[in-house]
Amino acid sequence: MITTRRLLLAAPAVLLLPQASRASPEAMTEAVQAFTRGATVRSGRVAMDISPLVENGNTVPLSVIVDSPMTAENYVRAIAVFNQRNPQPHVITVRLSPRAGRAILATNIRLATSQVLLAVAELSDGSFWSDSTQVVVTLAACVEG
């Protein structure tokens, strides 16, 4: 009897457990820190281009441009994009060399809901720069099926 009652009492608690796989602003901060290895991220030099109003979250064109001469002494080492409310905070990481010529990246991404996106660039001098954008999604990427 007691065990049954305990189970019944415990049931709502199990239902309230947060889904471990959900990204959150905190999970995004953690993912960004893993990418920057704890270094400070300054805003600027990075320009993220994405439509502020997204009709279909399944395929959202995204481009990121970093202001850099891309010479052997001064180039962009990596660009990473993060999100707040998809199941995972990470979207894409690209690694570049001076032979890429331009620090530019374009791809199509999925967005589960309206949220903030953050693009972070790592420069060859070890500094990190970022740009963030708020996007509104009317039809979400089919996470729920």
Partner: peptide
């Protein structure tokens, strides 16, 4: 050039 994808890529 190299890229690492997540499920968030369409």
């Amino acid at each position: 050039f190299s890229a690492e994808f997540s499920p968030a890529i369409a």
